[in-house]
Amino acid sequence: MRILNLAYMFFRQQLRHRVQVVVVVFAAMIILAAMIFSSLAWEHEGELVVDLGLSGMDFLAFMVVIFSLVFFMYEELEMKSAVLILSKPLRRHEYLFGHYLGTLMTVAFNLVFMLVILSVALAFLGAYLQPIDLFAFLYIFYKAVLVASLAFLFASFSSSVPLAVILTVFLQLLGHFSFHLHALGRQITNIPLRLFLDGLYFVLPNYYWLDVRDRAGLPGFEFSFGYFLTSSAYVICYAAIILYLAIMLFRRKEF
């Protein structure tokens, strides 16, 4: 219960910091895209707006997580606001987990608003979202779950805001790239290098598996119930392990 209260508190705090400005950016982008594409792609304007909208959501969800990370590190850790909260009968893992859940609530809140805006823009064009688009939307949230857990891991051991942000962005890029590195590795005869690339592929967060938005409908990709279950399990297990590590490190952190 204490964790949920904390999560709600952090969620409200982030809304006070006007993080929902991303929704305004998204709305402007979608309205503009709908206006332009209605004259640029006869009969297929809805498809273009969906592609653009989901990509925009993906990027803005990442930006919300980065904002939350900066807020957490700067206001809570560097300005010592965390000390005030932690002086109360509250465990450190409850504090960190509450903050993590608050971040996810903020991401979900913004994503739902963006989805509503996208649906309205599509309705004006006479198009609508397909079931696979809704799954793609869910997987955007899944990616945010992983990114947020990594961001909190970096926040719990790094001493400066830029370092944590750089590490999060770096892993975001590498996580998208790891599948292609693995594909490249299969062409390489150097065994140690190949093993290294395979290791990266399995150890790094594999965002390629979660990019249903980009891969839906492309040749070779079939979205099945089994895929949904295992990828959900992957996200939950990965995020839980990273959060576990973050909590372990956060317990030792000195303020």
């Binding site: 399995f202 594999n206 598996w209 089994g226 895929y227 295992t230 990828s231 399990a233 992957y234 939950i236 297990c237 990965y238 839980a240 392990i241 576990y244």
Partner: peptide
């Protein structure tokens, strides 16, 4: 348990 879940799901997706 978490590691087992992660490894199993990774191999399925792979």
């Amino acid at each position: 348990a978490l590691l087992s879940g992660l490894i199993a799901s990774s191999f399925y997706l792979h």
